[in-house]
């Protein structure tokens, strides 16, 4: 399994073979506040890198969720739709959003590693 990568839109992505698991970062959940609604892409649908692939809403506002790479959605996490507060509790593990079959693995190279993301998150929230 490859290392976890991060996008500027605060998604994390973990590649296992040609299937990537994608969710939002802890930093993103802290900025959003209490998440009370999640909408996920449909299984079988195709998504394009940096396109919208879901929505999260806090008590305050709605925010789009973007996919950091292109591919076909192969699985979605119904548990976070049924109980969106799970996203605040465990965003970078059990509260993943969707899995996709990656179209172009080289898109992974455009993303940040953990150190770079942490630095990015700190700078952009300051």
């Amino acid at each position: 399994m490859s290392e976890v990568k991060y996008s500027k839109e605060h998604e994390w992505i973990k590649l296992d073979g040609d299937v990537a698991t994608i969710g939002i970062t802890k930093h993103a959940t802290e900025m959003l506040g209490d998440i009370v609604f999640a909408e996920l892409p449909e299984k079988g649908s195709s998504v394009e890198k940096d396109g919208t692939a879901g929505v999260v809403e806090s008590t305050k506002a709605a925010s789009d969720v973007y996919t950091p790479v292109s591919g076909e959605i192969v699985d979605t996490n119904q548990a976070i739709v049924d109980d969106p507060s799970k996203i605040n509790q465990d965003p970078e593990d059990t509260a993943w959003f969707f899995k996709l079959k990656i179209k172009d693995p080289s898109e992974m190279d455009t993303l940040m590693n953990k150190d770079d993301y942490d630095k990015f998150a700190k700078e952009t929230s300051a």
Binding site: G33, V36, K60, S85
Partner: peptide
């Protein structure tokens, strides 16, 4: 103040 550390729901 819109919220404090515990958040709106709490």
């Amino acid at each position: 103040p819109i919220q404090y550390s515990e958040g709106i729901v709490e």
